[in-house]
Design a protein around this nucleic acid. Structure first.
Lengths: 225, 225
DNA sequence: CGTGGGTTTGACCACCATCAATGCACGTGG
DNA sequence: CCACGTGCATTGATGGTGGTCAAACCCACG
């Protein structure tokens, strides 16, 4: 069953029109885990800003090989159109709340100029962020990839835990593997390796504590031994 | 020696102000092979549209590992800023002519709205194009990568040669390797493999003729044997 | 308890990297 | 015009990293 991306009332979306005191009213939707926000080649009329939760942007080849393009965390904007269409699938990993913008808010300067600029900046940030990802996919070893991944997550969404930093991982090992261009087995082995060398601790499967952030960062950049 | 990216008269750039009949005047520069247009972390005040020639966008790690982010062909736009800075190096592979735009042409809607929209669309196309590259880097075998690369080049810049299509490769094997996340040796071997299976012919080292476009496309998508 | 999805671990192997030698084209100077 | 040097490409031999296949494990569910 395909899910429409329109912010209409159905099983998958909860639509809320939040009246803003001064400015225009803002539309937000909430999407459940596993539900799709949009699919590749869907006509792209809406752009979404993550308010809370985590999204997963993916592309799939005919034979099933999958690449996770990005994880959408609060503050990220997803759904930038090209030729009027989305070019990835997008679904939620956890209950996720999104601020809905119209494509015209980005493409036309007629409306709210502040919003227009904000969306444009988000697009440019997107381009910039993808470049790091390129380096990771193309030129880093498995341990460098995972260390990079954890380092980025740590600064973006790490929660302080005493002196240390804790990271929640709402995605599966397979998701991380498809993000880094590896397999779940390699991800698992590499986690074990980092754990055994006391650089991280794995509390629950989905909760990592960074014990040696400096060492992790060093590995991420290739300062190996 | 670092090269300024400002369109001023020096050894590296030839500045031409082309008076446009009806609209505003357009500034173009010409840059020689090997010369840098900008470097990573340079303040980004200008955005460039390739009119002719080929650019190379790269990122380099401290230890020298390199990732070619993109090749800039005519019609491509390069130099999208993030936080006011470039985030790749950029140099020319062949003599290249560029149309110069100001960053404000993209970021502000005050000026020429057509130009503004055109640059915005270019940025969105950029995001879209990078997604294919992700799939290539993360999830494809060496032969699939090279076949994908040649297929894209074929449709973008292939020149008809009788019934067939010919592709000029202004970049070295090392450039292709760093674009695809492989080594020069693997690129060379894979070229040989494609040549021996009669899918391509290599006229000069830098000139490839596509003999079986369908087969090449099939390999690119993983329809192997 | 029992089932099942995700994770971990192990054994083995393939693909691609690495190291090294050779080939080839081109430019320069004798 | 040839000898040489240089940079890039090709080819070969070998090894390591990460993939594949398979089994065990661990919880969170019912």
């Amino acid at each position: 069953m395909y899910v429409t991306a329109s912010p209409s009332i159905n099983d998958d979306f909860i639509v809320v029109r939040t009246p803003q005191p001064s400015i225009a009213k803002q539309t937000t939707i909430t999407i459940k885990p596993g539900k799709h926000l949009f699919l590749e080649d869907d006509p792209a009329d809406l752009i979404y800003e993550v308010a809370s939760g985590v999204l997963r942007l993916t592309r799939i080849m005919e034979d099933g090989r999958r690449q996770v393009i990005a994880f959408g965390y609060p503050g990220d904007t997803v759904g930038f159109p090209s030729n009027g269409h989305y070019h990835t699938d997008c679904d939620a990993l956890v209950p996720t709340t999104l601020i809905v913008h119209r494509r015209s808010d980005l493409e036309s300067a007629k409306g709210d100029p502040d919003l227009h600029l904000r969306l444009l900046r988000a697009a440019l940030r997107e381009i910039s962020g993808m470049q790091d990802h390129f380096m990771m996919l193309g030129r880093k070893s498995s341990i460098e990839k995972l260390a990079s991944f954890l380092t980025v997550l740590s600064t973006r969404v790490g929660e302080p835990l005493g002196e240390l930093t804790q990271i929640a991982l709402p995605m599966t090992r397979a998701d991380i593997a498809d993000f880094l261009g590896l397999t779940t087995e390699t991800i698992s082995r590499t986690f074990t390796q980092l754990r055994k060398s006391q650089i991280i601790a794995i509390d629950h499967v989905n909760t990592v504590i960074i014990l040696k952030p400096v060492a992790l960062r060093a590995i991420a950049q290739g300062d190996n031994d």
